[in-house]
Write a protein that binds this DNA or RNA. Structure first.
Length: 120
DNA sequence: AATGTGACACAAT
DNA sequence: TATTGTGCCACAT
């Protein structure tokens, strides 16, 4: 069956799912970066893949992935174009109390949640 | 089986 | 200091 986690043959089985799992652990009102997730998964140079994984996350109708809580390392909403509406990502974040100005998260460093530090 | 792609990150200008 | 270019790795075709 069309299993979205179909791990083929890599070192890391289910890279996508691992991205989803970590993303789901991001606390409400907090954010993290693609690179942070990539490092946590042991592939520091796969940050681009994290974005790709999140791109496919909307297909996982079963589970809710808070993809809006993942931005690039400087706190810009680089993935906003991949959401349904032009400002969906921004609105989702603002609904969690995050202030955004010109696609840039204010106090990004304060809100930053690093899985490497928080999880292990 | 091989080549192209991408919601990044970093080094070199 | 602000841009520009290159590497990187797992997935899709």
């Amino acid at each position: 069956m069309k299993n979205p986690l179909s791990s083929t043959n890599t070192n890391e089985p289910n890279f996508f799912e691992q991205v989803y799992q970590v993303t789901k652990l991001i606390p409400y009102g907090r954010v993290t970066s693609y690179g942070a997730i990539a490092r946590y998964l042991g592939s520091a140079q796969s940050s681009r893949m994290v974005g790709w994984a999140l791109n496919s996350s909307h297909k996982s109708i079963d589970e809710w992935i808070p993809a809006h809580r993942v931005v690039n390392r400087i706190g810009m909403l680089s993935g906003k174009h991949h959401f349904p509406g032009s400002d969906t990502m921004k609105q989702l974040l603002e609904s969690e109390g995050i202030i955004i100005e010109d696609d840039q998260i204010i106090d990004f460093e304060k809100l930053f949640w690093d899985p490497n530090k928080e999880l292990g």
